[in-house]
Nucleic acid binder design. Sequence first.
DNA 1: TAAAGCATAGGACGATCGTCCTATTCGGTC
DNA 2: GACCGAATAGGACGATCGTCCTATGCTTTA
Lengths: 193, 193
Amino acid sequence: MQNSTREQIITAADDLFYRQGFEQTSFANIAEAVGISRGNFYYHFKTKDEILKTVIQRRLANTRDMLDQWEAESSGPVERIRSFVRILIGNRGKIMRHGCPVGTLCAELAKLEHLQRDAANEVMTLFRTWLHRQFVALGHEADADALAMHLLARSQGIALVANAYQDSSFVDAEVEQLLDWLDACVAQSTHAE
Amino acid sequence: MQNSTREQIITAADDLFYRQGFEQTSFANIAEAVGISRGNFYYHFKTKDEILKTVIQRRLANTRDMLDQWEAESSGPVERIRSFVRILIGNRGKIMRHGCPVGTLCAELAKLEHLQRDAANEVMTLFRTWLHRQFVALGHEADADALAMHLLARSQGIALVANAYQDSSFVDAEVEQLLDWLDACVAQSTHAE
DNA sequence: TAAAGCATAGGACGATCGTCCTATTCGGTC
DNA sequence: GACCGAATAGGACGATCGTCCTATGCTTTA
């Protein structure tokens, strides 16, 4: 059931919500993208809230998988945090075109005061708590959450400005600074021991 | 003609675009906020593009005034840049509720691929070039634009995350870090002489 | 083959959108 | 007091929105 209609709808909605925004994407858009009628769409999802909730759940699951994979692949917390920073490089093109999928959805749902706002924030919280854990493993028990929030904010700012100016060299320069900042964090933690 | 209907419309639209977003704000919303009929509204602004363009022009003018005032009031570039950073403190409440007015509009119009996207970006560019000038005055001729962009991105990131989590202590902590970063910039430039 | 249920198509519905048109009112001028 | 342009009100318009209903296939099961 990988290519079931329901899965196709979720995939198309996920993509359109990212590229056009949630409010700007209509049932007709999604149905057209999948190649089905609006009536059939309604058979699978009764309300727009429901499809949004499902898309967010998928993003949560995908994010958890990605973070788990980094946890399994990378040898230590420093390399794991570097994996996070390097999303900005790997998704450079998409980010310049449409911004960060996490940040833009949170910002839009906040402005709409939408019911699913907290659910969208949870995707960001997934990164927040994961980063928190990595900084704790790095020896920053006391300020682990502050460091995680700092890194989140830096990434979001880079994505937003890169999206506005469509500037890829800016992303590269900022990522390098972030990696330097991370090295300084490591040095500070080993120094404190 | 300070309180003319046209001025009232622009003020109401500016506020509603900020709080609800551009796309989510209808002519009816603005007309109701001003207390006039939709027909009268159309007498002053023929299209939604036109009202958006006017609102952005007002924001550009207001931003220029603010930057000019900082230029006149503050004694040197460091204190001027500090004024920029402190917007995050002064507008803490509004930013937590609705995000940064500059960044959220740029992000929304980018996602809509709206005609006025470049105009919205210009507000951000106003800060960018102003900050650029301050960093040049600080002795950072070579990397003035990179520093300006860095500061822009940091501010935008702080605003976005603060908006998502409605966390004011996070804003305070990050602003303090920004001011430290600025001091380090000053030290580096005086050291290089 | 008949029955049953899932999946799909197509359109109707009320509401709201941006836009536009037409009266009507108001304020100042000969 | 007649006149005229600016300002305002109210509603009509086509389109699109989310939602919902119904009829028609398609597939499986007895």
